[in-house]
Nucleic acid binder design. Structure first.
Length: 657
RNA sequence: GCCGGCUUAGCUCAGCUGGUAGAGCACCUGAUUUGUAAUCAGGGGGUCGGGGGUUCGAGUCCCUCAGCCGGCACCA
């Protein structure tokens, strides 16, 4: 006898050998039909598995999050079966569920093409129509390895060999005459898989994520409960693609990239750079208010300096090296073999330590906060470059805080509070915080690491932000906090960071004089709020879909005339607005107002000030705001004072009150 | 760096199985003086990413290099 407890708390008895499907059937026919799997005593299981003597049973349907995951998992299996039937000789490897879908990695000599997708999707639909029961089997480990090897599935055999402890059994799921190693659970039959899946893209992926291994072919797919959901998802992707910062940059004339002229470096156009300048000015004010001192340090430093800092050994392959010699004015460039080498800075920290070291520092100087909008170059692999999110030349809103060990917590808390306030000002609500702890290869004693990790964690707790610990992901010199933002397509980017460093002050010999006159090593906090200006602006563009808030918009107001009779007044109004600090353009072209409104709306200008004969007569402006059709008729004076106040950066607005 | 795809006018894109380049917008000129998302007419503009090859003939086929896109690896 099996006693089953249902989610509503009611209890029912079933005969021995009963399954969750029997339970579902006893409740209702329709539930049995909808059932995909069951949660038995908290564990997700196949519907048809025998229940234990006492079982809390919850029937999982497509409505549950678990159900959707099962659908995606099964879609991956059906994909694998379809591919193996269509392309004999293809080996299967792994096929996990991911956000919004699944992928499957295949090993095959010939490359797949997206043109194969249609045939594969058709075959998948056939497998669904065939409604093969999905059967769970338990095999001995060694038998499984033998069997998979015998059918040429070397990867599968290797997976079993590596991840299953000796002597332990494995489970295999069979659908039709196809079977695969899998932990399960699965849907009861392939017919339960909704035909709401689609293959999305094809990509290479290293076996086990290691670049030294062979490359497999990965097929990404998406799968949903029904066609409406699939359609909604596809529409959502299309919408997200419209926010792509690279597309918007062209449309709004913000910047351009030229992979042949300067791979990974940005050509900022006037409008894009205006956004940059506003952000830079804002950060400069915020840092100033927090007691930072801004500095500027060399772009090129001698290799000896980088050797001392440790970058030459640890980071050289990401650095641009420049021989220090005077080339001939004509003919081929011949670099003398004995010429000294310089390196373009990939980071600002060594130079900041040099500034700290110049002159003698006292404990009274600490914490010393040195800030720089430091332009760094990193020799990134070409395949890593991505718009302005991942570039080879970028400017960090960098600073290094030199302090005593007992000041770490308060400095970290101050930084986290500042960062949070800045992100609020930019309107970011979703920030992922990661705390990366000690890696295997590290400098410094465990006691120091204990303290450093503890201090960082205390500080991040104080902010109240949720965070996740990334074990072993810290830098070799110390643990770090990473603040991540997500772009329109869902890709996650590290922006802000705070890194504790006990090593660099040591390597470069930085010290200060303490109360008792002794030389003491300071601790260094590497920190950036935005991370890189380029990346942050890229994310901002996507966040706002190109429609910047007034304080950041490159052009804040366009004064557009209806008739040339209003030209003189339009110019006067624009001048008055400019005098109040606003960024204003006039549009006096001989065009209809519809045309002008459309053009500046497409350009996402926050405010169009329309001026016709009437406005010119009455010395008024007809304001139209981006995203609205409403007209707001105000006097020129009202517009000047109102818009000037409205256009203030958030920190200045707070200062005004 | 690795795998796959792509690269045609300033932008977005068309160009079937090889027959010798096209549209819309933008730009320039003219007309139109316009009331809140595209006024009309005319005009100029392309070594079809670079190089090599196959062919009587290549934007179309092949090779190669570069760049871009999507992943993977990398991101101190």
């Amino acid at each position: 006898m099996i006693q089953v407890t249902l989610p509503d708390g009611s209890k029912r008895d079933y005969e021995d050998g009963a399954s969750a499907l029997d339970v579902a059937e006893s409740i209702s026919k329709s539930l049995a039909k909808k059932a995909l799997a069951a949660r038995v005593n908290g564990e997700l299981r196949d519907l048809t598995r025998e229940l234990p003597a006492e079982a809390a049973v919850e029937i999982v349907t497509a409505k549950d999050a678990d159900g959707l995951e099962l659908i995606r998992h099964d879609a991956a299996h059906v994909l694998a079966q379809a591919v193996q039937e269509l392309f004999p000789g293809t080996q299967v490897t792994i096929g996990p569920v991911i956000d919004d879908g699944f992928y499957y990695d295949f090993a095959r000599e010939e490359p797949f093409s997206t043109e194969d997708f249609e045939a594969i999707e058709k075959k998948m639909a056939e497998i669904v129509d065939a409604d093969y029961p999905i059967l769970r089997e338990v095999w001995e480990k060694d038998d499984a390895i033998e069997t998979f090897k015998s059918i040429g599935e070397d990867y599968k055999a290797q997976i079993i060999d590596d991840i299953i402890p000796p002597g332990e059994a494995i489970t295999v799921y069979r659908q039709g005459n196809w079977y695969d190693l899998c932990r399960g659970p699965h849907l009861p039959s392939t017919g339960k898989l909704p035909k709401a899946f689609k293959l999305m893209k094809l990509a290479g992926a290293y076996w086990r994520g290691d670049h030294r291994n062979e490359m497999l072919q990965r097929m990404y797919g998406t799968a949903w409960r029904n066609e409406q959901e699939l359609k909604a998802y596809l529409t959502q992707i299309e919408e997200a693609e419209k926010r792509d910062h690279r597309k918007l940059a062209t449309q709004l004339d913000l910047f351009h990239l030229d992979g042949e002229a300067a791979a990974g470096s940005v050509f900022w156009h006037p409008k894009g750079y205006q956004v940059w300048l506003q952000i830079e000015a804002y950060i400069r004010r915020r840092l100033g208010a927090e007691g930072y001192n801004e500095i500027k340090t060399p772009q090129l430093m001698d290799s000896a300096q980088w050797e001392k800092s440790g970058h030459w050994g640890k980071f050289r392959e990401n650095m641009f090296i420049v021989p220090d010699f005077i080339p001939d004015g004509e003919g081929e460039v011949k670099i003398p073999s004995d010429s000294r080498l310089m390196a373009i800075k990939p980071m600002n920290c060594p130079a900041h330590v040099e500034v700290f070291k110049s002159g003698q520092k006292s404990y009274r100087d600490l914490p010393l906060r040195l800030a720089e909008f430091g332009c760094c170059h990193r020799n990134e692999p070409h395949g890593a470059l991505h718009g302005i999110m991942r570039v080879r030349q970028f400017t960090q809103d960098d600073a290094h805080i030199f302090c005593r060990e007992d000041q770490i917590i308060s400095e970290t808390e101050r930084f986290c509070a500042l960062l949070q306030s800045v992100y609020d000002d930019f309107g970011f609500e979703k920030v992922d915080v990661k705390l990366s702890t000690r890696p295997d290869m590290r400098a410094g004693s465990d006691a120091v690491w204990d303290r450093a990790e503890h201090d960082l964690e205390e500080a991040i707790k104080a902010t109240g932000l949720p965070y996740e610990i990334m074990p072993g992901e810290g830098a070799f010199y110390g643990p770090k906090l990473e603040f991540q933002l997500t772009d329109a397509i869902g890709r996650v980017w590290q922006c802000g960071t705070l890194q504790l460093d006990f090593v660099l002050p040591e390597r470069l010999g930085a010290d200060y004089i303490d109360e008792s006159g002794d030389k003491v090593r300071p601790v260094m906090l590497h920190r950036a709020i935005l991370g890189s200006m380029e990346r942050f602006i890229g994310i901002l563009i996507e966040e706002f879909a190109g429609a910047f808030p007034l304080w950041l918009a490159p052009v804040q107001v366009v004064v557009a005339t209806i008739t040339s009779e209003a030209d003189a007044y339009a110019k006067e109004a624009a001048e008055a607005l400019r005098a109040a600090g606003l960024r204003v353009e006039t549009d006096l072209r001989n065009e209809k107002i519809n045309y002008k409104v459309r053009e500046h709306s497409v350009q996402k200008v926050p405010i169009i000030a329309v001026v016709g004969a009437r406005e010119a007569d009455e010395r008024k402006l007809a304001l139209r705001r981006f995203g609205s059709k409403a007209q707001e008729i105000v006097t020129l004076e009202e517009a000047v004072s109102g818009l000037a106040a409205e256009a203030l950066a958030p920190d200045l607005k707070r200062a005004v009150g």
